[in-house]
């Protein structure tokens, strides 16, 4: 990681109260890509009988990771906000395992950024969820 990227990774989550509350940690940053890990925690459980974490927590991770991918894109002049996000849940995440989302900003116009993302638990061969989203591209003020 270059210094600029390492700084971004550290400050990005530190500036997001929800990201911090959910224990998110930036694990990888590229040009228009990001990977963020969210450790398993009892607060995230959506099904108390199985201990499987709530889909909403996975959505929060996908949204954060998608936003990070937009912000690291070389053409992005400033901040971003989510316009739309669709998440497909392929299977329940294994209780006790952390979830890692990887998002890629695969296209950017002057006003819209297009993102796709996948989330995995410790089994990296079978995604837990997939997402596609659009984000705003905000001019630097």
């Amino acid at each position: 990681m270059t210094d600029r990227k390492a700084d971004f990774g550290e400050t990005f989550i530190a500036a997001l109260p929800l990201g911090k509350a959910l224990g998110m940690e930036m694990v990888e940053i590229g040009d228009g890509m990001a990977a963020i890990r969210m450790p398993y925690h009892a607060d995230l459980i959506g099904d108390p009988d199985t201990g499987v974490i709530h889909g909403g927590a996975v959505s929060a991770l996908m949204d954060t990771c998608g936003g990070a991918a937009v912000m690291t894109h070389p053409d992005n002049p400033g901040g971003t906000a989510t316009i739309d996000l669709r998440i497909d849940y392929m299977r329940a995440a294994t209780p006790g395992q952390s979830i890692t989302a990887r998002a890629e900003c695969y296209h950017m116009t002057r006003s819209v950024a297009f993102v796709r993302a996948q989330a995995f638990d410790e089994d990296e061969t079978r995604p837990v969820a997939a997402a596609t989203g659009t984000f705003t591209v905000e001019a630097k003020r």
Binding site: P17, L18, H54, A57, S59, A60, D63, G67, T82, L85
Partner: peptide, 27 residues
Amino acid sequence: DEKLIGNPILPALHGGATASFLEVTAI
């Protein structure tokens, strides 16, 4: 709650908090 914030400068609720809220409501 402060922990629901996603953009501390505006400030604005985190999109993930809103996504979770909608999904919880539906379920």
